[in-house]
Design a protein around this nucleic acid. Structure first.
Length: 562
DNA sequence: GCCGTTTTCGGCCCGACTGTTTTCAGTCG
C-alpha cells in the first residue's frame, strides 16, 4: 500500500525535474500519469506485473521493480543530481512554472525560497528577458499565497460559498451551475468553478467581479474571470459560454482533468474533436448542447459527475456496465440522529417533525451510551425513559416511523456499553469507537461485530476532515470483516467526517459490504448533511440496493432480521 | 515515456488569459 504512494511521489519528482530541465512535455506527462495511476491503484503493486496498469510501460515497470528491490530509483538520483535541494519545491508557488523557475535559477542563482525572496526584493526579476514589472509583481503575490499555505476546504463550506456566489448571477444567466470538484462532490475543494450561459457574457463577468465577497480579481477577460474571495482567500473561477455550448462546457469545466483527457482521446480515435464548445468533425459542430449529447457522440451513456475520475467509469460506460447510482429520492430515512436525551440540540418530537418535512418515512434516534459521559450518554434507566417517550410521540405523530436505536460505545476491551438484554429491546444498534483511538482498535471493532445485535458500525475510521487522523487501525481488515459478518458500514455524512470516504467505499463494496448513510445530526439543521453523504456514496459507485436507508422501514435488512 | 483493428514510429487534449512582445511563450485549469 505505502509502496504505491512512495513510488508515485518519486515519479512526480522526476516529472518536476525533467520539466524544469526542459525535457519533452510528453515524457513529463508520462511520469505524471504513471504517478496518478499508481496512487489510484488499490492493490499491492508488488503482487502484479506493473505494466498491467495503464500508463505504465516497460521503462516505468523497470523503475518500479528497481524500487521494490533496492528502495532506490537510479533515474531519479540522476535527474536531481545537479538540482539544489528545495528548488523544485518552488514550483508550488502560484504563477511560477518550470520555465520561469529555470530562468531565475540560471540567471540569478535562485536555489531556494530565501534566494527567491531576496531577488524579488532587489527588483532583479523584472529586468530578465521575457519578464517585466507585472510578472515580478505576480510572483511576489504567489510567494505570499504560497507562504500562507493553500489548504483545501471541506465540501460543505464550498457548497455554502458557491450558493452565495451564484445568487447574484442567477437572474442574468440563462443557465448557471457549479462545476469542478464541487460538482463531483469531492470531500475537499481546492477552488470553486462556476459555469454560466447567457447572451450578456460581459455583464455576467462584470457582476461576478464586483461582489462584496471579492478580495482580488486575479484575471478577467470576455468570457472568464477568476477572483479570490474574502473567505480564506478561496479562489472562484467563472466561465461564461453561449447556451448552445452548455453541455460541452459543463463537461469540460466539471472535469476531472483525467476524465476529459481520456474522453478527448477517444473522440480523437474516432476522428472527432472535443473542446468546451462542442464535439467537432472537422470544422462541423455535431454536438454540445447537453452533456448527454457529448457522451452520445462517443456512443456511451451519460456518466454522473461523481464518477468522472478516470477510475474505470469510461470503460464501464462503453461496456454498458455503469452502476445506477443511489439518488436523493431513494433515501427513505436517516438512521443516525441524536436527541437532547444525550448531546443533541433538539428534542425527539422536533427532529421527528423536521425529518417528516424532509419527506422521510422513518428516522432512527441514536443517542450516546452511558460511558460517553461528556456526550451525556444514557444509562439503562434514561434509555428506558427515552424509549417510552418515543412510544408516546409516535402516538401523536403519524406518517413517520420513529425507530429506537442507540450509538453504543465499543469499550477498551472490545465489549459493548450495554448488556445484550438491553440491546435486544432496540430496533437496531450502531456501534462506535469513542475512546482509546490508538489501542487495539481493529481487534476491538471485530470483537464488537461478533455481537449479533450489532447492525451498523459508525464513522469507521474516526478521521475528521478538520485534521484528526483517525483511529490507529487496519481499515481494510475491519471492512472485510464487516462484510463477512453482515454489519453495515456507515457513511457518516457529517460535514467534518464523510467517513468512510469514497475510496474505502469502493474497496468495501469489493468485499461485498453493505452500507448506510447517516447524518449523525445533532440538530435539525444537520439533517441536510445527507447531501454530502449521498455524494460520497455515489463517488463510491453505490447503488440503491447497497444502502440500508433506501428500504422501507419494515424491509430494512438489519442483521437481526436476517 | 507510452501506445497502437488504419500506426512499432509518430503521435500524445485543448483553449483562455496575461504579459511581454510585434506574433508568442508561459501558466493555468
Amino acid at each position: 500500500m505505502g509502496k504505491n504512494t512512495e513510488i508515485a511521489d518519486i515519479f512526480e519528482r522526476i516529472a518536476d525535474a525533467l520539466e524544469f530541465k526542459g525535457e519533452m512535455v510528453f515524457k513529463v506527462s508520462a511520469y505524471r500519469k504513471a504517478a496518478r495511476m499508481l496512487r489510484e491503484y488499490s492493490g499491492d503493486i508488488s503482487s502484479i506485473h506493473p505494466s498491467e496498469i495503464e500508463g505504465i510501460g516497460k521503462g516505468m515497470a523497470e523503475k518500479i521493480e528497481e524500487y521494490l528491490k533496492t528502495g532506490r530509483i537510479k533515474k531519479y538520483e540522476e535527474v536531481i543530481a545537479d538540482i539544489p535541494e528545495g528548488l523544485l519545491e518552488l514550483l508550488n508557488i502560484p504563477n511560477m512554472g518550470p520555465k520561469t523557475l529555470h530562468l531565475l535559477h540560471k540567471e540569478l542563482g535562485v536555489n531556494n525560497l530565501k534566494d527567491l525572496e531576496r531577488v524579488l526584493e532587489e527588483g532583479k526579476v523584472a529586468a530578465l528577458p521575457g519578464m517585466g514589472e507585472k510578472k515580478e509583481e505576480n510572483i511576489k503575490k504567489g510567494v505570499l499565497l504560497y507562504k500562507a499555505g493553500r489548504s483545501r476546504i471541506p465540501l460543505a463550506t464550498a457548497l455554502k460559498v458557491v450558493r452565495e456566489v451564484i445568487s447574484p448571477l442567477s437572474d442574468i444567466s440563462e443557465e448557471i451551475s457549479p462545476a469542478g470538484s464541487l460538482r463531483r462532490m469531492k470531500e475537499t475543494i481546492g477552488d470553486i468553478d462556476i459555469l454560466a450561459a447567457g447572451e450578456k457574457t460581459q455583464e455576467i463577468v462584470d457582476i461576478f467581479t464586483r461582489q462584496s465577497y471579492v478580495r482580488e480579481v486575479i484575471a478577467k477577460g470576455d468570457t472568464k474571470a477568476s477572483i479570490r474571495t474574502i473567505y480564506n482567500n478561496l479562489q472562484v473561477d467563472l466561465r461564461v459560454v453561449e447556451k448552445d455550448c452548455w453541455g460541452a462546457a459543463l463537461l469540460y469545466f466539471t472535469g476531472s482533468k483525467a476524465h476529459n483527457i481520456k474522453l478527448r482521446g477517444i473522440a480523437k480515435d474516432r476522428g472527432l474533436k472535443i473542446n468546451e464548445y462542442g464535439v467537432f468533425r472537422g470544422t462541423k459542430r455535431i454536438a454540445g448542447k447537453t452533456e448527454d449529447d457529448v457522451y452520445r457522440t462517443l456512443g456511451i451513456k451519460f456518466i454522473p459527475p461523481e464518477l468522472r475520475e478516470d477510475k474505470g467509469e469510461i470503460e464501464a460506460a462503453m461496456k454498458g456496465t455503469l452502476p445506477v447510482l443511489v439518488e436523493q429520492k431513494d433515501i427513505k430515512g436517516d438512521l443516525h440522529i441524536h436527541s437532547n436525551y444525550s448531546d443533541g440540540m433538539d428534542d425527539i418530537e422536533t427532529v421527528t417533525l423536521a425529518a417528516k418535512r424532509r419527506g422521510y418515512e422513518y428516522i432512527g434516534i441514536c443517542d450516546h451510551s452511558k460511558t460517553s459521559k461528556i456526550a451525556g450518554g444514557l444509562d439503562e434507566e434514561a434509555l428506558k425513559r427515552r424509549n417510552e417517550e418515543i412510544d408516546s410521540i409516535q402516538e401523536k405523530i403519524k406518517g413517520i416511523k420513529i425507530l429506537k436505536g442507540m450509538e453504543v460505545d465499543i469499550l477498551s476491551n472490545g465489549s459493548l456499553d450495554y448488556s445484550d438484554s438491553i440491546l435486544e429491546q432496540l430496533d437496531f444498534v450502531i456501534v462506535a469507537v469513542h475512546q482509546g483511538f490508538f489501542k487495539n482498535v481493529t481487534e476491538r471493532i471485530k470483537e464488537a461485530m461478533r455481537n449479533p445485535f450489532v447492525d451498523i458500525l459508525a464513522h469507521p475510521t474516526g478521521r475528521l476532515l478538520s485534521g484528526r487522523e483517525g483511529y490507529k487501525m487496519n481499515i481494510e481488515e475491519v471492512m472485510e470483516y464487516a462484510a463477512k459478518m453482515g454489519v453495515a458500514l456507515e457513511i457518516n455524512a457529517s460535514y467534518d467526517r464523510l467517513d468512510i470516504n469514497d475510496v474505502n467505499i469502493m474497496k468495501a463494496k469489493g468485499y461485498g459490504a453493505i452500507f448506510v448513510i447517516g447524518t449523525d445530526a445533532h440538530s435539525t439543521g444537520m439533517l441536510e448533511d445527507m447531501e454530502l453523504g449521498l455524494g460520497t456514496a455515489r463517488r463510491g459507485w453505490l447503488e440503491k440496493k447497497d444502502v440500508l436507508n433506501t428500504y422501507r422501514w419494515q424491509d430494512i435488512p438489519f442483521r437481526r432480521r436476517r
